[in-house]
Structures are given as C-alpha cells and as structure tokens.
Design a protein around this nucleic acid. Structure first.
Length: 491
RNA sequence: CGGGGUGUAGCGCAGUCCGGUUAGCGCAUCUGGUUUGGGACCAGAGGGUCGCAGGUUCGAAUCCCGCCACCCCGACCA
C-alpha cells in the first residue's frame, strides 16, 4: 500500500518530505532555502488566508502593506530586536547591475553602492513603527489595528519545505494602543483567534501559553503561543502573539496626548502566523496513504470518479455525475469530476487519497442501475453505498463528521502523548523513548531551562495559561515551583 | 556554518573504483490497440550540454581542482 510514500513509522522526516513533493504542494527552487509553493499547496494557503482574514476583520482589523526593505538604521533602534534577528538578515547593498567588462555575463556595478544598506524584512515592526510615528498624535488616533499579508526573509541555515524556509509567507498584525491594558487584551485576543482557527478550521488541537524569557520574541515583553503536537512526538509552534510594551514606541519616539493632556508612549502588539501552518497540517493528520485535509481547508472537498467499461457507459455516467457535481456545488462543496480516460479507477482512488480529498464518490454501472453512489471518506478510509438522492444531505453531515473526527483523533493522540513527569530519570526516559509533551515543574530560571535544553534538546514550549497552581519541585534543580510547564522537543 | 552523502532523460536509478564503440534500465510522455468497482497490458516512438566551470589526456559521466544545489546529522531559528 502507498508504495510511493515512505512509511511514516519507518522514517518520519522522509515521509514528510515525500508527501510534500508527491502531493504536489511545493518543491525546492533554484534558490537555496527557498521553496516554490505549487498550485495545490498554495490553494491550501489561500483557504488559510481567507479564513484568518475574515477573523481579523471580524475583530476590527484592517489590511495594509509596508515595504519589503528596511533601512539598516531602523533596525538598530530596538536593541534586543536587532540582536534577535541580526544573524539571519539578507542585506541589499547595491541597486544596479552592468555588463562585465571582460564581456561575460553581468556583474554588480560597484559604483552603484547604496548609501544606506537595506535589510530585507525578517519582520516589520521597525518599518511599521516608523510610519506609526507620523500617524499618531492623540488618543483619538488610537487604536491602530493593522494586519499585513507579506513575505519575509530569514536566512536559515537548515531549511525544510514549509517548516523552515529562508523566505516564507505570513501575516503580521501590528497594533498600537493608548493603554497597557488594551494592548495586553489585544495580545490575548489574537492568540485566541489563532487557537480558534487552529482548532476549528485546521482541526489542530493547541495549547495556549506564555513563552519563557529565552523563547520570547526579540523585543517583546511577553509572547503568547499556540503549541501543537505532531505525530512524531515533536511540538510545533503554530502561531505567536506578542505584547511589545512601549519598546518600539520608545525606539521610534511614538508619543500621544491622552485625554488628560499628558504625553505618553504608545503601547504595541504584534502577532503572526505563517505558511509553516501547512507543515503542521500535514504532520498532524496525514497517514501512509497521503494527506488528510480537514474539509474546511481542503481546496477540493469532493472528487467524483466514474467507473466504466465502454464509452457509452462513460457517457451515461457522466450525465449523472455532472448533475451531481452541479447539485453539490450549489450546496457549497468544491467538487472535481475526474473523468481522465488515461487512468484506471484504482489509480484515481489512490491519487485522491494522496491529495487528501475528504470525500470520494465512485459511480459505476452498478450504481447507475441502482440509483446509488459509493461514498468513501479519507480520514477513516471507510466506504458505503448510498442512494443518489440522499448524497447532498449525507455529505453535509459527513464533512462535519470528518472535521470533528480528525480533530478528535489529533486530540486523543496528544492526550496519549502528554505525560506528567516528576523525576529527572523519567523525564529523560520519556524524551528519549517516546517524545510528546511533558508537564513538569520548573524553577523559573533561564539557567535551568538552558541546562535542560543542552542535556535533552527539549525546551519549554510554553507555560500553559490554564496550568493550575500546584506546589512541586523543579524536575532539574529540585527548587520549589508553583506550577507545571510544557516541555517538548520541537520543530 | 561544521561532519557525512548525493547530483547521469520529467522522476527513480545503473555505469564512476580500474578513462576507450552509438551512455543504459524502470517509471512517466507520445502514437496505435486492448482495458477500466483499488495504483492495467502489448507494440512502436521521442527525449541526455552526464549539476556548473576549469584542467590532465589521443580520448573524460569516469581522473584532478574550484564552485553550486539537494538530503541526513549537529550548531542557529517561526
């Protein structure tokens, strides 16, 4: 079965790579570390975008667009921000090429050196706050609630399709507020939007929490995260929301007059979610047959496959199948009729599974005779035959079932792979042998966190929002701790 | 950026150690025919700057030098 894919039990990393390529989501490009997102993969991103965009608008945000290039001087304004990103920035130094004087090829024109070098944005806080400075004078100008859909560049050493690429697509929200409380509320609201999106659209259960100081965004006072567990027991940070305090306002001198006429710095947040989510989607749900996509994000929800011997048979089936396609489309499903004549049904079945189409309908002579259609669901691979006139109603319910089922499956997996650990010995045992999430006590110091990372490669993924107070001793140092934090090896 | 591996037709590979006809094989593609309820078969055809650039040689996919890309493992990160 699935002879074109590496089994995920055999080699999970290879299975992932195979799947991205074979399902036609993306491929490597001629540029180191950069991927080509192919139409099928991009369609998934478009669904992610469309839904998130609706959710951003519903929470009062508007879209805008800021430049790809950031003057180097802007970058150095916020100290910890520069430090965080300096090592992975692409820099534009020249603005012109010319023909090589020795006649061969084209070279950078050394006379066209930029006076001030430009950084290709790894994130846009600085360029955006430089604009906000001009937009904000009074409390009446606040809040500013802007999102941008953009590409960013982070010069990564080691890349993997979707999970970590030198250039990736994302959205970044950047908001400005009059009060700390309002900014914190925004930060919380947006991690809530992400978690709602992850769980209800991606069918991906996530744990919301605070990042530790070590794992925090460069320049943030507080970073909130949603953490998901992949099928190989590694964690993946699926979205982050940052409370930036007044750091960027101070760096760019953005002050406003409040109601009482007093001058104060503006409070900021930023939040982002990237094409990495597609990697999460793959690793959370898919199997050895291929992708498993949640109906709410699948580019194609239903594929109809005709089964026929002779041309006149195909013609008869096509009439019914196309009528069904129209009916399903009217009901809001995205449907493809796969009447390619150069492939046998078996191939098409396998192909629809590889691509993760949630529901497959097969229609052959038998069905024509009986007025039925065969319905196969991708998540469980179960098949059943139902009357043609009941298909629309059936699929409406089935799509919901699939959406819920893959969420529950992922949730069950997470529950079975989350361990409450109290001794260092058990911690090592679990990290090395099964992976997964570990809930354990931690003394709250960066030193301990570093030591644990060095010795086990596990990091604190987050301090869960809902971690109940519980007296205990740090798993590593034995010092007192007031609650458990979430450890895992991560992507 | 360090260690290891790979690069030969669209894809997967053999050939490279030990240089020597016209660079092969499978899949895919095209044509014709037979097929079609879980990855069809037969016959024929097309498709190659052997990753790129130098060098050694009468002769280089093969040997030498440099570069590039990808994969795996580390360090760094969303």
């Amino acid at each position: 079965m699935a002879k074109f894919l590496t089994n995920k039990e055999e080699n999970y990393a290879q299975w992932y790579n195979d799947l991205v390529i074979k399902a036609d989501l993306a491929e490597n490009s001629a540029v180191r570390g950069c991927m080509v997102i192919k139409p099928y993969g991009y369609a998934i991103w478009e669904h992610i975008q469309a839904q998130l965009d609706r959710m951003f608008k519903a929470t009062g945000h508007v879209n805008a667009y800021f430049p790809l290039f950031i003057p180097k001087s802007f970058f150095s304004r916020e100290a910890s921000h520069v430090e965080g990103f300096a090592k992975e920035c692409a820099v534009v130094t020249h603005y012109r090429l010319k023909m090589d004087e020795n006649g061969k090829g084209i070279v950078v024109d050394p006379t066209a050196k930029l006076e001030e070098e430009l950084i290709v944005r790894p994130t846009s806080e600085t360029i955006i706050w430089n604009s906000y400075k001009n937009w904000i004078q009074s409390y009446r100008d606040l809040p500013i609630l802007i999102n941008q859909w953009a590409n960013v560049v982070r010069w990564e050493m080691r890349t993997r399709l979707f999970l970590r690429t030198a250039e990736f697509l994302w959205q970044e929200g950047h908001t400005a507020h009059a009060t700390k409380e309002e900014a914190v509320e925004e930060t919380e609201k947006m991690i809530g939007v992400y978690s709602d999106f992850a769980e209800n659209y991606m069918a991906l259960p996530v744990i919301k929490g605070y990042k530790t100081e070590n794992e925090r965004f460069a320049g943030a006072l507080d970073t909130y995260t949603i953490e998901a567990l992949m099928q190989d027991g590694k964690a993946l940070q699926a979205g982050t929301s940052h409370f930036l305090g007044q750091n960027f306002a101070k760096a760019f001198d953005v002050q406003f007059t409040d109601k009482s006429g007093k001058l104060d710095y503006v409070w900021a947040t930023s939040w982002g979610l990237s094409t990495r989510m597609i990697g999460a989607l793959i690793m959370a749900h898919s199997d050895n047959h291929g992708l498993v996509l949640p109906p709410k994000l699948a580019p194609l929800q239903v594929v109809i496959i005709p089964i026929f011997k002779a041309d006149d048979q195909l013609a008869a089936i096509s009439v019914k199948a196309l009528a069904l396609k129209t009916e399903l489309e009217k009901a809001g499903f995205s449907v493809k009729y796969d009447d390619r004549e150069n492939f046998k049904p078996g191939f098409k079945f396998a192909d629809s599974e590889l691509k993760g189409v949630p529901v497959r309908l097969a229609m052959g002579p038998r069905d024509l005779e009986n007025g039925t259609v065969e319905v196969a669901r991708r998540d469980t691979l179960e098949k059943e035959t139902i009357p043609l006139n009941a298909v629309v109603g059936h699929l409406k319910k089935l799509m919901d079932d699939i959406q819920v089922n893959i969420f529950n499956k992922a949730l069950k997996f997470r529950q079975e792979n989350t361990f409450s650990i109290d001794t260092w010995k058990d911690f090592l045992e679990v990290i090395d042998n099964q992976g997964g999430f570990i809930l354990a006590h931690w003394d709250g110091t960066s030193e301990t966190e570093e030591k644990i990372k060095e010795e086990t490669k596990a990091t604190i993924r987050c301090i869960p929002f809902d971690a109940p107070p519980e007296e205990g001793k740090c798993i590593y140092s034995g010092r007192p701790s007031g609650k458990r934090v979430l450890f895992a090896r991560s992507y």
